[in-house]
């Protein structure tokens, strides 16, 4: 397989990373090398093999429904790029 210019542009858009045409060309070549490495995996037969999502075969612990958090807005918003009236601000979103 080979990633085209359009493929790279599409995934960069999906990942919300701005890329210039030159970057797409350079990145595309590197990504194709990486996928060359990854493709080696396709040769192995994995029929009937259960996918392994976690190293340990255990189930999820569930916590009790109790409120344990307190208001830490001031501390959290101290590192925010833009806030007003307790809100995080972003450029206007049009729905």
């Amino acid at each position: 397989m080979s990633l085209t210019h359009q493929d790279v542009a599409r995934i960069a858009r999906l990942a919300r990373i701005a890329v210039t045409d030159e970057e797409i060309a350079a990145t595309g070549a590197q990504l194709n090398n990486i996928f060359g490495l990854i493709e080696k995996m396709q040769a192995v037969n994995t029929d009937g093999i259960e996918p392994m999502a976690h190293p340990q075969d255990v189930s999820l612990r569930l916590r009790d429904d109790v409120v344990t958090e307190t208001d830490r807005r001031e501390a959290f918003q101290a590192v925010a790029p833009q806030v007003a009236a307790g809100l995080f601000l972003v450029p206007k979103v049009i729905e």
Binding site: M41, T46, I49, E50, P51
Partner: peptide, 11 residues
Amino acid sequence: LKAQKVRRLIA
């Protein structure tokens, strides 16, 4: 999904 299956083989 393929990688997760290979992961099982490795384990």
